[in-house]
Write a protein that binds this DNA or RNA. Structure first.
Lengths: 203, 203
DNA sequence: TGGTTTTACTGAACACTGTTCATTATATTT
DNA sequence: AAATATAATGAACAGTGTTCAGTAAAACCA
C-alpha cells in the first residue's frame, strides 16, 4: 500500500469525520443554528481545517442532502415487494410522512431549506432527489396499467401527490399544524392522508 | 389636541416607518438576508432606535406576518360572490397559488420561515391565520350542504387541501420544481391543481 | 423665562457568524 | 540530516442581533 493511497484514504476519513460531526450538530441544533465553529469544536479541530476539505458550509449541506435522499430511498425500497401498485402508492405516502416526522431536521434539509444553488444549474447535485421522484412516477404508471388514474398525466399527477405529502410534512416541520389547536399533529396527518387516499381511489 | 396624543401618534408613525422600511428590505433581499442594520439604514436611523419600538427582529416578523394574512384575505374576499361553493373552493385554490407566486417572500414569511415562537403559546399572534383557515372550512361545509364530500370530516379534509396548495407553493418557493427540468413551474402548478380538482370533484 | 425632568436617539461595544490566510508544525522525500 | 511538501492552526476581516451609557432635544414646572 503506497503512501499516496493512504493519504487518499486519510483525506476521505477526514471528510467523513467532518460530515459525521456536522450531521450530529445539525440534528441537535438545526441547520441555521449550527456554525462552522460548532462543527469544528465537535470534532476537536480548528474551524480553518474544515475549509481544507469543503469549499464552504453549503458543500457540507449538499453532502448531507444527498445522504437524506439515500436514507429515504432505503425506506422506500422494501415497498417494492407490495404486489398491488395502488397499495404500494399508499404505503409510500405513509413511509414519506413517517420519514418526515422521524427525521424532522433531515427533511427540512432536503425539502425546505433554501437550496443554496450558487453556481446555477448543477443537476448532478440532485441525482438522488431525481431518483426518488422517478420511483414515484413508476408506481403511478403501474397504477395506470391496473386501471387507475385514467386520462391523467403522470408528470402532473406526481406533482400533485408529492405536493400533498410534502405540504403536510412542511406544515408539520414548521409548526403550522398549530392552526388546529385541538387536534394532535399526528392525528391530523394520519386522517389527512386518509382523506387524500380516498380521493386517489376515486380518481 | 394634547401633547400626549401627538406623542402617541408619533410613536405609531415611527412603528409604521420601521415596518415600511423592513417590508421594503425584506422583499428586496429576503428575510434571512435582511439585517436590523439594513432596515435602520433604509429609514436613516441608527440600529438602536428600532429596539425602542420592537422587542426584537421577530416582533417585526410577526407584524408583517399578520399583514400577509390580511392581504391574502383581501384577495379571498371577492370570492364570497361566487354562488356555487365548489366553484368558490376551486377559485380559492387558484387565488392561493397566485398569491404565493406573486408574493414569494411574503408567502415564505407566512408559511415557511421557522416561526419564532419564543414565549410558547401565543395564539393571539395567529389570529389572521386562524381566520383564513376558518374561511376555508366554511366553504367546505357549504360544499357538504350541496352534496359534496360525503362522510368527510371538515377538519381533516381542510388540512389535506391546505397541504396540497401549500405543498405546491412551498416547492415553488424553494425551487424544488426544478425536479421537473422539462416543465415550466407555472405549468406544473396549473396542471397539478387541475388534477387535484378532479379528485375533489369525485370525492 | 430658566431650570429640571422626561423622552428619543445615537453609536460604540459585546458576542456571535462564515471565511481567509500567513504562520507554524508535521510528515515525506531527497 | 537537510530540504521540501503537506496539514493544521488561530488570528483577523467583515458581517450579524442586541444592549446600554451617553447625549441632545423636547416637555414640564417654577
Amino acid at each position: 500500500m503506497t503512501i499516496a493511497t493512504r493519504k487518499q484514504r486519510e483525506k476521505e476519513e477526514m471528510r467523513s469525520l467532518i460530515l459525521d460531526s456536522a450531521r450530529k450538530v445539525f440534528l441537535e441544533k438545526g441547520y441555521s443554528q449550527t456554525s462552522v465553529r460548532n462543527i469544528a469544536e465537535e470534532m476537536e479541530y480548528s474551524p480553518g481545517t474544515i475549509y481544507l476539505y469543503f469549499k464552504d458550509k453549503d458543500e457540507i449541506f449538499h453532502e448531507l442532502h444527498e445522504e437524506g435522499f439515500r436514507r429515504m430511498l432505503e425506506k422506500m425500497q422494501p415497498l417494492e415487494h407490495v404486489p398491488d401498485p395502488f397499495e404500494r402508492l399508499k404505503a409510500m405516502g405513509r413511509v414519506y410522512l413517517e420519514f418526515a416526522r422521524n427525521n424532522k431536521d433531515l427533511y427540512d434539509l432536503m425539502f425546505i431549506i433554501q437550496a443554496p444553488i450558487k453556481h446555477e444549474e448543477e443537476p448532478e447535485k440532485w441525482q438522488m432527489g431525481q431518483r426518488t421522484l422517478e420511483y414515484l412516477k413508476n408506481v403511478l404508471s403501474d397504477c395506470q396499467a391496473k386501471g387507475h388514474f385514467k386520462n391523467q398525466d403522470v408528470e402532473y399527477l406526481s406533482f400533485a401527490i408529492w405536493s400533498t405529502v410534502h405540504g403536510m410534512s412542511a406544515l408539520y416541520c414548521r409548526d403550522r399544524c398549530k392552526a388546529y389547536p385541538n387536534i394532535d399533529p399526528l392525528d391530523l396527518m394520519n386522517n389527512g392522508i386518509k382523506a387524500f387516499n380516498e380521493m386517489l381511489e376515486k380518481l
